[in-house]
Nucleic acid binder design. Sequence first.
DNA 1: TCTGGGGTCCTAGGACCC
DNA 2: TCTGGGGTCCTAGGACCC
Length: 425
Amino acid sequence: MEKKSLQALVDCNNFYVSCERVFNPKWIGKPIVVLSNNDGCIVSRSQEAKDLGIPMGVPLYQWKDFMERHGVIACSSNYSLYADMSHRVMRILSHFHVDLEINSIDEAFFPLQKIENPLEHCHSLKKMIYQWTGIPISIGIALTKTLAKVANHIAKRHSEWKGVVYFSDSKTITHYLEDFPVQNVWGIGKRITQSLKRKGIQTAAQFRNQEDNWIRHYFSVTGLRTAWELRGIPCIALEESTEGKKSIMTSRSFGRYLTDQSEMEHAIASFAARGGEKLREERSLASWLQVFIMTSPHKENDFYQNQMLLFFPQPTDYTPDLIRYAQIGLKKIFRSGYAYKRGGILLGDLVPSSHFQQDLFVDQDLIQQGRQKKIMRLLDEANHRFGYPILYFAQEAREPPWKVRRLPRSPFYTTRWEDLLTIEI
DNA sequence: TCTGGGGTCCTAGGACCC
DNA sequence: TCTGGGGTCCTAGGACCC
């Protein structure tokens, strides 16, 4: 007989802050926050910062005074460092679990039904990852993904579990769900929470106990799936991790307003070039490109946003093509007289580059194609080796004028030779 | 003055077809 | 007052996630 499914969810604690602390141990025990691009929002908080009541995702300027009063340290984000630390954690996990499903930079699921003693196994994983990477993690174990999420939540808040929570019987599950705010359930966001509150539902247990028809009627199949998952019936399958992305987006808010068309052209070219890199990393080709620009959505009068979709004659990952099409689109939608706050590109209908069949009717010289591939490979290799872009296209902006950092960023400790950590003895 | 950057999935409604 | 009906495909927009 087949054993019941069992899911584990690994989640790195306060991931960005934890990465910073690995190389800056004097920050351990202090309230720290990491900021988004251009230092706009707070995107990661240490436990001490959370305890002070600083919320996730809020604009920095609204909390600046408060943070100064309480001695909260803020630093700019360093995504290369976080991506590299994430790879290290995931590599260790995938060594023990080949069917690891990476959910985000700091989160992964894996099935556990074949493991003799899940609790013990996960405790040793947790210890190993801390020893080898310096990153503290929490693990939730349960029959379904949604319950594993809840268990993980509990693991972070109830220290008596020592970072690993195993929902092994229905009594334990009910006990925690009765105390679990419904808005913290995976898949239940702001809108659904509001609607549930109006109907008198506050906890995960209350939601789980509603009738199927009622849930289906108000919250569609998505809501019903969540309810079933809370009852321990798996509805969200463990996906094959080999499945690739369906679209790739590269976009930024600008550190200052852009009014000049040529500046916007440089910005869009840089986004297209970065999109090309991501495509080739994924070993995919894009069938179309969408370019979009917008003014600040916080300024209601004088708002303008527009986008244009362009199809390639055949799927491509060749950066000069991406830049060329992005510029064509931009010309059509750019209106002068506006102060632009954000722009970007979206690449869609991705197909694996290995599966792509040459279209016989497109007049494309094969030798030429081979050369293009070679150029892109050289470009990627060079930029990868140095850990930051040293080769780029003339249309790209060299020193992005829209990028404004006010606070120092940590060095690229793990991806740039000059930034290697030195220890004085 | 200052408000992230990615993604996925679902639904409703229109176009179109037989 | 009557004015078919059902299926598929596509798109835009909403809701959610971290």
